[in-house]
Design a protein around this nucleic acid. Sequence first.
DNA 1: GAATATATTTTGATATATCAAATAATTACA
DNA 2: TGTAATTATTTGATATATCAAAATATATTC
Lengths: 152, 152
Amino acid sequence: MIYQINMKFNTPTSTVLYSIEETIKAYRRLCQKNISSVIPDITVDQALILIMISQSDKTQSEIADLVFKDYASMTRIISLMTSKDYLHKTIDNADKRKSKLTITEKGREVLKKLKPMIRKNRETALANISDQELQQLFETLQKITQNCQLNK
Amino acid sequence: MIYQINMKFNTPTSTVLYSIEETIKAYRRLCQKNISSVIPDITVDQALILIMISQSDKTQSEIADLVFKDYASMTRIISLMTSKDYLHKTIDNADKRKSKLTITEKGREVLKKLKPMIRKNRETALANISDQELQQLFETLQKITQNCQLNK
DNA sequence: GAATATATTTTGATATATCAAATAATTACA
DNA sequence: TGTAATTATTTGATATATCAAAATATATTC
């Protein structure tokens, strides 16, 4: 009951979903600012995708699914990243529909600088939040995600 | 401690921040799908902005701040909405830098159909989540937002 | 009251999101 | 084996995000 004192859930700007947008935008801004200070010409999305590619041996679409990107967006992001010489893209000979993505020398250099920065961003964002609180947040978010996907 | 059994916070895909992205994307997809079924030619962002304009008498930038939009984006969204005859835009005579935004007849019709749909989307997304859980979610998100904005 | 600073909005350039349709390679199956 | 269905990726069109710079209008200050 005390929750309703300074919180109503029935106008757009006071909903939790609105709050989620606010949080993710603030976080992305923080990340972009800090990443740009280390590597000027890479975006948050490109950085995340570079890390994902470095950690697994997946196809373009699989990476896209991992980072919640549309396949069309992925094509364009990958294209930008190869033109900036972070990635090298070749056709998978076993299945010529698929692309193989490998990280270039320059990409590996970038990764080295990125990783500590990403860790720092996360620490900054999650400062003073207990593991239990994070776990609770995670669970509630998962519930919402599932609710949204049910009648799909 | 039990939280660490099926949850590690140190790889990109297992972080809470990643989970926030997932949730907001799922929610936006749900909203767009349902809104499109009622009004085919409006986007989630446009719908939210229409509601905001209808509920207050604010300038373009103030509305932008409310919905976390960049002013440049706002200019373009408003321009699309006036060209679709949802909004009417005039210059504020008291301060000719500012614009006055008013909702057209067509805009009001759209609003009538939108409001119940928006309420339904929210209910779908937040089904089976208690007020207390929502309040907790809200508080944690606010903490993260503030953490991100501190060294700004 | 003219020069300067500030506020509001716009424009340009580039990146990403989303949907639909197109391409091309592979698989299924009659 | 050839045709149809499926899979992986791309392309086109349009919407939004972000930063920097420009354009106007207003406020400040000397």
